[in-house]
Write a protein that binds this DNA or RNA. Structure first.
Lengths: 250, 250
DNA sequence: GCAAATTTGTCCGTATGTATC
DNA sequence: AGATACATACGGACAAATTTG
């Protein structure tokens, strides 16, 4: 009963107009609500029943819409607590690219190869700006991460990859371009997740990896963009090589 | 056929283990089904009732899981027809970045500025390779797009933006790195959607835009990477300027 | 062109798990 | 510890879209 709560649908005179699903209207409605009230990540959203009434949809439609927005990190849900504006991260990109890498359409390793190439492009393409932008204090922190990798290299690998991730994050931080940093981090995440599934040995040549990181730090300290770019090439070459090795093993 | 029998819930002995929502298990189950059967975009998936039985979940949970996978373009649904493997595009990135650009936390225009910078980095960073890789036939097609922009420039703007998009897509195509091309396209989409909302006049200086595209084509034809890079700088400078203008208007 | 079958879309009612006060 | 507010999950029913005979 009470089927016609919502504004009557289907009064669209245009035959060309394909009517979109109700949940999509709810998605747009929630987006509009956030924009209209100028909410920020972490701000609370109305409860599910409130959204149902406000948008004229059932709980099912509202919940499906929330699932879509959650996948995009536009909305974040805490069970038993409430619904909030999400962090607007690039988590969806990670999910999407990770699955693409695992499914591997034609060439199993093209995705990985492309990924590394873009990361190298970010750092090499910004070489001049990075070398001039990085301040002494940040360079010290980069060096600290290299030390951290040396310490963690002996033990198990968790600290090693964390330090590696932090190193590259910090390296791109002074650009003032959040997008580049977030993309680079996202690609790093995808690589770390997918590589083991493709028998790419991420922890091979750890010593060489550490040495190359050190070389990058030294180049920055010397404010030498050419040496910086060369160090980056040295750093990424073995990664590319490992992907090629794994590719040829199949 | 069987997607995989779910283990009975609720007998988890570990109190520390935070049990993930059932729909997430369904998400993972559907992903695993695609990977296990090595499906490709467009391949059919089991019907909703079949997934319910295979994964031991109700239809609501299965549908919410499908919504999540749809948002990531891992799954595609056709009403009244069936569920299929999605195209694995970067549509989620477009959605995510678009909303971030519209919400605009601190600086309304930082997202747009970052976006353009990355696109320029892609094309400038690949200047040498592009200049040497592009074949005569592809250069002719680039020139054709410039002509198309000239024709469409007089009329309404739809053909213009399409030709612009096609130009940059084709420009990055010969790299053999699909990720770069798709990212560039995604950023282009975000820019076109967000710019009008921020009063950035995308169609301003159309003549200059066409002239710069022509200059890029000429540089490629002459196999002149330095001129190519210079032309790109010329091309992106006014875009950056328009963003700055819009920023200062607020 | 119509009608039936199949499949997804939407709704409702209810019960359960979870976090906060 | 109890109460309350909220999200999670289930099952059944009907509507809408698509294909097929």
């Amino acid at each position: 009963m009470a089927v016609g709560q919502r504004a009557v649908r289907g009064r669209e005179p245009e035959p060309r107009t394909v009517r979109q699903p109700l949940r999509q209207e709810v998605v747009d409605g929630i987006k509009a609500y956030i924009l209209r009230n100028d909410l920020r990540p972490g701000d609370p959203l109305p409860t599910e029943p409130a959204l149902c009434e406000a948008l004229g949809a059932s709980r099912s439609s509202v919940r499906e819409a929330i699932r879509i927005l959650t996948a995009l990190d536009i909305v974040e849900v805490r069970h038993g607590h409430g619904t909030y504006v999400g962090r607007l991260s690039l988590s969806a990109l990670v999910e999407s690219l990770t699955f693409r890498g695992l499914l591997s359409p034609d060439d199993d390793f093209q995705v990985m190869s492309d990924l590394i190439e873009v990361r190298e492009l970010f750092e090499r393409g910004m070489a001049e700006r990075l070398v001039s932008c990085l301040e002494e204090e940040q360079i010290d922190r980069l060096a600290a991460h290299v030390d951290e990798m040396r310490r963690a290299g002996a033990g198990e690998g968790h600290g090693f990859v964390e330090a590696d991730r932090a190193f590259h994050t910090l390296l791109l931080a002074p650009l003032g371009n959040d997008l580049i940093g977030q993309l680079s981090t996202a690609f790093w995440d995808v690589y770390v997740i997918v590589a083991p599934h493709l028998d790419v040995f991420t922890r091979a040549h750890e010593a060489a990896t550490i040495a190359n990181h050190q070389r990058i730090v030294d180049a920055v300290r010397d404010r030498d963009p050419a040496e910086f770019a060369a160090a980056l090439t040295e750093h990424y070459a073995p990664v590319r090589l490992r992907i090629e090795e794994a590719r040829s093993r199949r």
